[in-house]
């Protein structure tokens, strides 16, 4: 502690103590600041919920788009094909439309003919 007993005092001794106090302060401030920044960057419940909703919306949207773009069998036994394919089919063979209407009016005793619907029903 006491190094000033010599005839010639060590000047840097006081400055060194001073720097030591500054270092202590710097560490203290760094710890508190780090704690704040660490707590600040964590995402809360609200942000998580927003992310989940966003993902859900994207999922639904891609499913809806998919229904418009590819062909497949619906749950009620009918089929769906892309709308462009349906348009060109009807343009080439307009009787299909009449057939379609008939099958809509009465389901009939016969087995239902394959009916084209557009994807969204």
């Amino acid at each position: 502690m006491s190094d000033s007993n010599n005839s010639r005092p060590v000047i840097s001794g006081q400055v060194a103590s001073w720097l030591g106090v500054i270092a202590f302060l710097a560490v203290a401030i760094a710890v508190i600041t780090y704690a704040y920044l660490a707590f600040r960057s964590t995402d809360g419940v609200d942000a998580d919920r927003r992310l989940a909703q966003k993902a859900l919306r994207a999922d639904l949207e891609s499913k809806a788009k998919g229904k418009l773009a590819d062909s497949g069998r619906n749950t009620d036994g009918t089929y769906h094909i892309p709308i462009e394919a349906a348009i060109s089919l009807i343009a080439a063979k307009p009787e299909v439309l009449v057939q379609l209407r008939q099958s809509n009016v009465g389901p009939g005793a016969t087995a239902p003919a394959p009916v084209f619907t557009n994807g969204t029903k």
Partner: peptide
């Protein structure tokens, strides 16, 4: 100094960090 730092850090954690946890993500 360490003791005083502890008192300050305690109130910082107890008031401000816990406040931040509760209020920091309010929307």
């Amino acid at each position: 100094l360490a003791g005083v730092f502890f008192t300050l850090a305690a109130s910082f954690g107890g008031l401000l960090l816990s406040g931040q946890v509760q209020l920091g993500q309010l929307h």
